[in-house]
Simulated scan of single mutants.
Amino acid sequence: MTFSPAACPRLVVKVGSSLLVDPAGEIRRDWLASLVADIAERTRAGQQIAVVSSGAIALGARRLKLAKGGRASLEDAQAAAATGQIALAGTWAGLLHEQGLTAAQMLLTLDDLEDRRRYLNAAATLDRLLRLNVVPIINENDSVATEEIRFGDNDRLAARVAGAAMAQGVILLSDVDGLYTANPATDPAATLIPRVETIAAIEGMADGSSRSGMGSGGMLAKVEAARIATAAGAHLAIAGGHGLNPLQRFADSGHGTVFVAPASAPARKAWLRGGLTARGAIHIDAGAVEALRAGKSLLPAGAQRIDGRFARGDLVLLVAPDGSHVARGLTEYGDADAALVIGRRSDELGDLLGYAPRSALVHRNHMALL
């Protein structure tokens, strides 16, 4: 199956800074107007579209005359984001209004999509806006985000938004037109990879450079975004955004790289699988790995050691003996009690803990295999 943007009832479109903002720090208004025209045409045809838009820091840095594009320090980036976001949102809202569409603004931090309750609140807001035919304009809330609570790039934010919005597709409009066998800027023999069925097959091909110097992602971030989106059941495409009407051009040509999603997982499993942060890790033995892959819960007997500080209900990684990540899940024990019971049989737990134990360290209903 070839990913077609027109075939997705819900679509997330991510716009990179280098496409939206010119080197002088001004919005490329004609280009953006053409993208908005594409969005309007699709919306009138019944498609629901959310936009993840970069550009706030680049815009704000010019207005504040900040060095290094506003990225010389966290404080500069926060000030630039606060200043640029209002200009960015105003431009989007004005151009959408000209097409008869209403815009909404959502600013999110990593915690908003990693905390289950806040994730559900964000998902409910997105769903209502899209059902009202509003176009949400989404960005990371860089004016308050710190290194500990930020995505760091809008590619991964777009992928997480796709899961929250229950979108079937994501398009990353970029200054590169897809994933290549090598860096096309340095290797003339590099060829475009049009379709990726499994991300493991192409790991190592991407690098972390951003061609324009304006963005914060690079191809590594895009591959990680593809991992998150496909885990939530959404296809993801990387497509070149240069030139007018980029959505229509991609729909017509199909030129880019499409990461194909498997059958979608239940929403809770998709949230677990797509998570970016974990409070700790539980290292498990080979027998436990087989049991998890057979659909069973993680019992204390299969655990070998724990890392990190976590409470009951926190998200933890389950790690195989070779160091690979087997699953993510919500732990039934805090780290102190987990340390007491690892490697122990179920009939020993009550005496060790002094209270009636829970049967699993991580229950299968609160776990997603990776």
Rank of each mutant, 00 (worst) to 15 (best):
A159D: 02
G152E: 04
A89V: 10
E140I: 11
L35F: 11
A80S: 12
A301K: 14
I282W: 01
R128C: 13
A162G: 12
S17L: 01
F151V: 07
L370I: 15
P321F: 08
G46P: 12
Y355R: 15
P23H: 00
L101F: 12
L330R: 13
E224D: 12
D127T: 08
G256R: 06
L108E: 07
L318P: 00
E75C: 09
S210I: 02
Q248G: 15
V258M: 11
R345G: 13
L132M: 11
R116P: 04
A288V: 02
D142P: 08
R273Y: 02
R328Q: 10
L220H: 02
A50H: 03
H363Q: 13
V316K: 00
L349A: 04
S18K: 00
A82W: 04
A81N: 04
L272M: 06
R160A: 07
N154Q: 12
L272A: 04
H363T: 08
S73N: 12
Q168H: 09
A40K: 09
F310R: 03
Q105K: 11
R268A: 11
A56H: 02
S53H: 10
T146S: 14
R71W: 01
G217F: 02
G243I: 05
D153F: 00
A226S: 12
L96V: 07
P262D: 10
A237V: 14
S73R: 11
D187G: 07
Y119Q: 09
N133M: 11
A286Y: 08
A267R: 14
H242G: 04
D177K: 14
H325F: 01
A294G: 09
G100Y: 02
N121W: 10
R195A: 08
I199M: 13
T2V: 13
D351I: 03
G354W: 10
A206K: 09
L272T: 01
G84K: 00
I193E: 08
H366W: 08
S209A: 15
R10P: 06
V161Q: 02
I137W: 02
D207V: 03
D115I: 10
Q47T: 10
R305H: 15
A327Y: 01
A281R: 15
P321S: 05
S4I: 11
V289K: 04
L126N: 04
T83W: 01
S324N: 13
T277I: 14
G243R: 10
L101C: 06
V134M: 09
G46V: 12
A360P: 00
I284W: 00
G204T: 06
D207M: 04
T186P: 05
N133A: 14
A221P: 02
F3N: 03
M205G: 01
A80P: 06
